[in-house]
Design a protein around this nucleic acid. Structure first.
Length: 568
RNA sequence: UACCCGGUGGUGUAAUCGGUAACACACCAGGUUUUGGUCCUGGCAUUCCUGGUUCGAGUCCAGGCCGGGUAGCCA
């Protein structure tokens, strides 16, 4: 896939270009992707990852992977590993720059002591509830804590004892002494440290006080010599505090820049909601192919190249936008169209018997592996008297513009012969269970020597040679573009799409698929792109539908149906 | 009702000292085709509003309107 041609610079690139021009950072560009290891990464994180690593690459700089592990009660080693895997999968390389905020705890503590000594921080004994009360509201100023004017000596002593574990959780905090009447609530003496007697996944029980995000994050950036600290819009109000801490300490001071996070139609992106979907079993897990997680996309069969191209096209700005999921689907198709081998498989089989084809005969026909890539070559596909075709490819009473099979009508079986439908066999219930056809031996390979044309070409699988596969058809997880668009009293779960997963067991597929491995991607001709699920391990073939092909016919048919419907 | 940030077609992103609104997706209409796929062609916005500055404003100024964020000892 052609990546990042000379696209116009987004506003962050513009800032960097200007900085380079003025020599602000001595020509350096150093970014970082700083996830908290408290969950799985989703495509919104992919935007951030690609932005940060992309900037570094574009301007000859570096990008760190840093785990912002300052809250031990929410974080786990398992998440660290999954995040590393996902970042790598996207094609980003942090080389030797893997860092953890927890490695800086000692330095952060020393800086906190420095702030106390400068009279800029104090130990506060207010309870969490009292702290909230004293903070005031959006429209009312806060009040000073009664502990705000403790002596430096007392603060130093108390802070040391907080670290030593003398006090219970929630009993005291270390706060910055700024301004309780500040219009920005983040500046009303924010908490820097809280007491948390909780084991940390990396530091164990070495600490029982942990730094808050606002205190820690700028220090982490500073320690790592970051130049541009890029985060999402909701941290805009935190920037004055980010700047304040760094200014007080007179240390390296990166520039914080905020951009809009990625939102997609027909899905949710918040960690809380994704966690709920998993916990309440609306999906099979974090890597359920319907999830917008990186692991879900991967299992779905989406390629890293498609995600990269998608994020590139989405752009970077400060406008709170919602991207049409159709753009992602387009990027997936565009990539897979160029790379996925074609294959034939039938989702909803209808048996066809070629009456004039000898009972015990069979033969192999040549099929093109990928018309977009001549180098992909050809393969043999077996043919015999009994075949399966798609139920959708036959209509006893065909509507206008239906080019497929119908009684008396002739179509082409892809790479095989022209066949004409001569009979329809039904069961007692009146359902079509089998078709009788005749074939024209002269049309072998799909062309008629007499120049005869057919309107339709359909796919098929030889009944005798077919392999059986379970196919999972995935659709949008939610049935509305905005899952939060619900009546009063309901929530996004009310919009869960009951059809988001349809499993079709035992679908006949061509025998060349016998060697397919988990992760392999194919285009099932005329249907869509599918990939082999890891569940196939036991020798049983399981496919996930990544995305359908564009389907002009179903669109047309739907429109005709609507038009023929009586008015009002 | 406080502070901060935004507002260009159905959806996004551009227009870099103010100079005749570009690209993509979606949608619509055609063409090609052994995938109703791909590919190709065409259609689809007077830039939230009102004033102002200017020969000229999406870009600058003023006022308004609308949307988002913020009251964790989460990040």
């Amino acid at each position: 896939m052609p990546e990042a041609e000379n696209a116009p610079a987004n506003f962050i690139e513009q800032i960097i270009i200007d900085d380079l021009k003025t020599g602000k950072w001595a020509g350096r560009v150093h970014t970082r992707f700083p996830p908290e290891p408290n969950g799985y990464l989703h495509i919104g994180h992919a935007k951030s990852i690609l932005l940060n690593f992309g900037l570094a690459e574009k301007f000859g700089g570096k990008c760190n992977l840093r785990f912002d592990d300052t809250n031990p009660v929410k974080e786990e080693e398992e998440y660290v590993e999954s995040i590393k895997r996902d970042v790598r999968w996207l094609g980003c390389d942090w080389e030797d720059r893997l860092y953890f905020a927890s490695d800086y705890f000692e330095q952060m503590y020393a800086w906190a002591v420095q702030l106390i000594e400068a009279g800029k921080a104090y130990v506060c004994d207010l309870s969490p509830e009292q702290t909230r009360e004293y903070r005031g509201t959006l429209t009312r100023p806060g009040r000073n804590s009664p502990y705000r004017d403790r002596s430096i000596e007392e603060n130093l002593d108390l802070f040391k004892r907080m670290r030593a574990g003398e006090f219970p959780d929630g009993s005291r905090t270390l706060r910055a002494k700024i301004d309780m009447a500040h219009p920005n609530l983040n500046m009303r003496d924010p908490v820097m440290y809280r007491i948390l007697h909780a084991p940390h996944h990396r530091t164990g029980d070495a600490w029982c006080i942990y730094p808050m995000y606002d205190w820690a994050h700028g220090l982490e950036d500073s320690i790592e010599n970051i130049t541009h600290s890029i985060c999402t819009l909701e941290f805009e109000n935190h920037r004055p505090l980010y700047d304040w801490f760094l200014d007080q300490l007179h240390v390296h001071h990166p520039q914080q820049i905020e951009f809009a996070r990625l939102n997609l139609t027909y899905t949710v992106m918040s960690k809380r909601k994704l966690l709920e979907l998993v916990r309440e079993r609306h999906v099979a897990g974090w890597d359920d192919p319907r999830m917008p997680t990186i692991s879900g996309l991967r299992r779905r069969g989406v390629t890293p190249a498609a995600v990269r191209e998608f994020c590139r096209r989405v752009g970077v700005a400060k406008f709170d936008s919602v991207i049409d999921i159709a753009l992602l689907e387009h990027c997936i198709r565009a990539d897979l169209n160029k790379t996925a081998p074609r294959v034939m498989g039938v989702l909803r089989p209808l048996k066809v018997v070629i009456e004039n084809y000898p009972e015990n005969q069979d033969e192999e026909l040549d099929a093109i592996n990928n018309p977009e890539d001549p180098a992909a070559g050809t393969r043999k596909v077996p043919f015999c008297r009994e075949l399966y075709i798609e139920r959708d490819d036959f209509r006893e009473d065909p509507p206008r513009k239906f080019f497929r099979l119908a009684p008396g009508r002739e179509v082409r079986l892809r790479y095989a012969y022209f066949v004409t439908c001569t009979g329809v066999i039904k069961n007692e219930a009146g359902q079509t269970v089998e078709l009788r056809c005749t074939y024209d031996p002269a049309t072998r390979g799909g062309d008629a020597p007499d120049g005869r044309k057919v309107k339709g070409t359909i796919h098929w699988v030889s009944a005798r040679h077919a392999l059986r596969a379970d196919v999972r058809l995935y659709d949008h997880l939610f049935s509305k573009p905005d899952p939060d668009d619900v009546p009063e009293g309901q929530d996004y779960r009310a919009n869960l799409n009951p059809q988001s997963l349809v499993v079709l067991p035992g679908c006949p597929v061509e025998p060349s698929l016998g060697t397919a491995q988990p992760g392999d991607r194919f285009q099932f001709e005329r249907l869509g792109y599918f990939c082999v699920d890891p569940d196939s391990a036991g020798g049983r073939l399981v496919f996930n539908r990544t995305v359908t092909l564009r389907d002009t016919w179903s669109k047309l048919e739907k429109k005709m149906r609507e038009n023929s419907r009586p008015e009002h």
